[in-house]
């Protein structure tokens, strides 16, 4: 390879630009430089427009500020606007409670959050059941900090567009009515939007290849699932109960367009997970102070009330790794944990 023919063809792309057109007036000569430089300088606007660490590559910005910054994050299970409202509040509150700088680092997908936790770019992450187990298996010594009161028995809701003609049902066997329909999960790594629903579907005798087109879709998040099912792009989908209820409440889910079909049995879901080395970095006893701080959030405090409302919970409760055994087992069954 790599002979004249190759280069000729590669060069074709460039001939484009070399074509002779009207020559430039001479006074434009200096402008060439100015234009080239100024275009190249546009990236410098970054700190002006966004502040340091705006956009995504931010995990780094924190590192350069020293390791005394607690970097928190979360799996992107809902609309970015909501996450961007919630987690800066959490960062503010934790910072006040613990006396350290706390920074929220947004993530674009579930596996990215797990990876960033493994590489040590995130200190405290709000994981789902499955991603939490994945994170702990990849980072030995990672600590389960806390879960919400609703996470010990969390539910998924199967939903359908009203246009699909699907009707609500009470028995798990009713899931068979989804065979041959266009169906979407949330993220591939979501516990309430994929893992457990797939488990319940399998129990009811519905295989993934039974859906229309021979495979389910993956919308990416719970909000996206609701929007896609409402629009009719998918006949049915599955979301977590807390997002479903809050979407009904704030009008994002329109009952004339999308309805609930069935509520799944309960399982363990979301939890905070922390790096094993927080005590070394922030001082002895920091991990337990962190746990206590989160467990102390109460609706009586106006700011904490706002946070708890956005989390859809009354309070956080202690959690332990052992309660996620079932999630790990199901994860292994469907090949998401190895």
């Amino acid at each position: 390879m790599g002979t004249g023919g190759t280069t000729q063809a590669d060069d074709l792309a460039d001939i484009v630009g070399q074509s002779l057109r009207m020559p430039m007036p001479i006074r434009l000569r200096a402008t060439a430089m100015v234009a080239g430089l100024s275009l190249a300088l546009v990236p410098l606007l970054a700190p002006l427009t966004g502040g340091p660490g705006a956009g995504l590559p931010p995990a780094l910005a924190q590192q350069s500020q020293g390791l005394k910054v607690l970097r928190i994050s979360a799996i992107p299970d809902q609309k970015p606007e909501k996450l961007n409202r919630l987690y800066p509040l959490v960062a503010q509150e934790l910072s006040q409670q613990l006396g350290v700088t706390v920074k929220y680092v947004p993530m674009v997908d579930y596996p990215a959050a797990v990876s960033a936790f493994r590489t040590g770019d995130l200190d405290l992450v709000w994981f789902g059941g499955l991603t939490g187990v994945q994170a702990r298996l990849q980072k030995s010594g990672a600590k389960v900090v806390a879960q919400r009161d609703i996470d010990a028995s969390f539910n998924s809701i199967f939903i359908a567009s009203t246009r699909s003609g699907l009707q609500p049902f009470r028995q798990q066997k009713g899931l068979t009515s989804l065979k041959g329909r266009r169906f979407t999960f949330g993220s591939e790594s979501s516990t309430s939007g994929r893992l457990m629903p797939q488990y319940f579907l399998t129990q009811a005798g519905v295989k993934l290849s039974d859906f229309a087109d021979g495979a389910p879709g993956f919308s990416g998040s719970h909000d996206a699932t609701i929007a896609l099912v409402s629009s009719g792009a998918y006949d049915a989908g599955v979301v977590n109960e807390q997002v479903w209820l809050s979407s009904l409440k704030d009008g994002k889910a329109n009952p004339t367009k999308v309805i609930a079909l069935w509520k799944s049995p309960g399982y363990q879901d979301y939890h905070w997970i922390a790096q094993p080395n927080l005590d070394q970095r922030f001082g002895k006893g920091f991990s337990s102070r962190l746990t206590k701080a989160i467990l102390a959030w109460r609706p009586s405090d106006p700011k904490q009330k706002q946070i708890l409302e956005l989390f859809g919970a009354q309070k956080f409760v202690p959690a332990s790794a052992s309660s996620y055994g079932r999630i790990e087992q199901v994860g292994r069954q469907i090949g998401k944990i190895r």
Partner: peptide
């Protein structure tokens, strides 16, 4: 690269599309 989470405008494009904004 941004669409796959490495930052910049691509990340915003993906997130806004996914939330149908």
């Amino acid at each position: 690269l941004g669409v796959f989470g490495l930052g910049g405008l691509g990340t915003d494009l993906k997130l806004t599309l996914q939330s149908l904004e």
